[in-house]
């Protein structure tokens, strides 16, 4: 009863059939955490105002996701079912705190612009979701691939948003001017409302592409 691997045998059996590389690929596109699962909306909308912020946030989340997946997976037979959520949160919070210090050490400016959202990685449902739904039931190798794929998919999605928002809202990409000086910035794009608009349009494109693929 305390061993979660013995439950959900149906789910596990279906997973065993799929090749290992699929654990990695699925996060990039088919089960993309932002565009398909619509998880982790808080950082997605809040810190995708520039491409740099989006990339940094994506990489920080990837790191936390990877490490927590590894730890949760290796401890999956040790953690009793009743306290699993508390344990996962503890593990995730640890890696988030570590990331917080590391980003400060890398660049004070970057830490300033990401602000409170680094600490908020703790409550990113993507990470807890992967720990609970995948890492706690799968081997170390698979969990690693899953975390890596999901993390890169998340980073990719954030970058898509950040690039559009920075380009229209500031006329630059990674701080490089893309338009002449007289470019009229779309201020709404840098504001939170712009995040919602951009996300909606990307979701629209993603769903249209998915539908087109399904019909053909």
């Amino acid at each position: 009863m305390a061993n979660p691997t013995k439950n959900n045998t149906g789910f596990l059996a279906s997973l065993k059939d799929s090749p290992s590389t699929d654990e990695f690929i699925k996060g990039l596109w088919r089960e993309n955490p932002v565009f398909v699962q619509v998880l982790g909306m808080c950082p997605t909308l809040a810190v995708s105002n520039t491409a740099m912020n989006a990339l940094a946030m994506g990489l920080a989340t990837t790191f936390v996701l990877l490490m927590s997946n590894l730890l949760v997976s290796s401890l999956r037979n040790f953690i009793p079912k009743q306290v699993r959520i508390a344990s996962y949160i503890l593990i995730i919070a640890t890696f988030v705190t570590m990331t917080d210090y590391m980003i400060q050490a890398i660049s004070v400016d970057l830490h300033k612009s990401l602000g409170a959202f680094i600490s908020l990685i703790v409550v990113n449902c993507l990470i807890l979701g992967r720990a609970e739904a995948f890492a706690s039931k799968n081997t170390l190798g698979r969990s690693f691939l899953d975390g890596l794929g999901m993390g890169i998919g998340f980073t990719f999605a954030l970058f898509c948003l950040g690039a559009v928002r920075e380009l229209l809202g500031n006329g630059t990409l990674f701080g490089w001017a893309f338009f002449p000086d007289t470019f009229q910035e779309w201020i709404v794009m840098i504001l939170p409302a712009g995040g919602f608009f951009t996300l909606a349009i990307w979701l629209l494109i993603f769903n249209a592409a998915k539908e087109r693929r399904a019909t053909s």
Binding site: Q184, W186, I187, V188, M189, F197
Partner: peptide, 10 residues
């Protein structure tokens, strides 16, 4: 509303 948010000065 979108124009107001995007181009508040103009």
């Amino acid at each position: 509303a979108v124009l107001q948010a995007a181009f508040p000065v103009a």
